[in-house]
């Protein structure tokens, strides 16, 4: 069993009228089965309203399933006794960098999580030092979070989660409010944590470029998992991706269009250099 495993996970949002009596249900997550292995980098893709954020909130027991079960580190999140263990095991980073930083100084914010779980003072300092080092924010430790850029704030938020020593980090669209530079910064940090510290990463996003580095991609639409596989496999099915209102990287789309016109290219080309190599091979073979 993987670090995060869900069977037939279902979540209903209840719609209410002005008096607060229920008028209908909105099924955000619909019988989802997932199994994420320890150390894996999984990306969850989907357009707005596909249920990907709702799924993410289940991994931290912020939401509890209406039906079905989700286990985090073999602990059932629906059991209230497991609540704090689950939240310690799977840290969560949210979309808005301003609304998740609690401390008025960077290092105090990183220490907030360990303080909550009752870590002794000296140990907190050790963890804060290590976490800030891991995300490359040690130089800013005495700064006010208000003076940092969006990417730096998200790195502080990641450090805050790391200081709780989780086995898994769930990032719910961490780059949606950042500029391209900030986005690269945050992704690099996440990748490094995955490779060097062997932290399991679940990255929720709708930016295709962020998915390329993942071990596995899960595509969600209308609360269901509709595609699953390595990035090359998933992007290889370009026409299917388009049906779910998702883009594929530019180079993948170009290769796909060329292939439709009869050029012998492989499926799911993700990188420009790979594309150039294949085009050159075709050119040498056919002389065109």
């Amino acid at each position: 069993m993987g670090i995060i495993k869900a069977i037939k996970l279902t979540y209903d949002y209840i719609k209410r009228d002005e008096e607060g009596s229920p008028t209908g249900v909105n099924r955000a997550v619909d019988h989802v089965d997932i199994d994420i292995a320890s150390g894996e980098f999984v990306a969850v893709l989907g357009h707005n309203g596909s249920g990907k954020s709702t799924l993410a909130k289940h991994m931290n027991a912020l939401l509890l399933p209406t039906e079905g079960t989700i286990w985090v580190g073999e602990k059932d999140t629906a059991d209230e006794d497991n609540l704090w263990d689950v939240r310690r095991m799977a840290g969560m980073v949210f979309q808005n960098p301003d609304n998740q930083i609690i401390g008025t100084v960077v290092e105090e914010d990183v220490g907030f999580g360990p303080e909550n779980i009752g870590v002794p003072t000296e140990e907190i300092w050790k963890r804060v030092d290590e976490s800030l080092e891991a995300v490359g924010m040690t130089a800013y430790r005495y700064h006010s979070p208000n003076k940092l850029s969006g990417g730096q704030k998200q790195r502080v938020a990641i450090a805050g989660v790391m200081a709780m020593r989780p086995q898994c980090i769930v990032l719910d669209e961490p780059t949606a409010m950042l500029d391209p530079n900030g986005r690269r910064e945050v992704l690099r940090t996440v990748r490094e944590l995955n490779r060097q510290e062997h932290i399991t990463v679940v990255l929720i996003t709708h930016y295709m470029e962020e998915v390329i580095e993942a071990d596995r991609v899960i595509v969600m639409d209308d609360g269901r998992i509709v595609m699953e596989g390595t990035p090359a496999e998933v992007f290889g099915r370009t026409d299917e991706m388009k049906r779910y209102r998702l883009d594929v990287p530019q180079v993948t789309e170009l290769a796909w269009e060329l292939k439709k016109d009869g050029l012998p290219l492989s499926d799911g080309i993700l990188r420009i250099d790979q594309f150039v190599d294949e085009i050159m091979a075709v050119y040498r073979e056919t002389g065109r």
């Binding site: 840290g91 360990p114 009752g118």
Partner: peptide, 22 residues
């Protein structure tokens, strides 16, 4: 948002809380 972020980081009031800067 902030309440959710605090909860995700195991905030549960002042009980059993240690301090970084006592």
């Amino acid at each position: 948002d902030l309440a959710m972020a605090m909860e995700a980081r195991c905030y549960h009031g002042g009980e059993n809380r240690t301090r970084m800067k006592p």
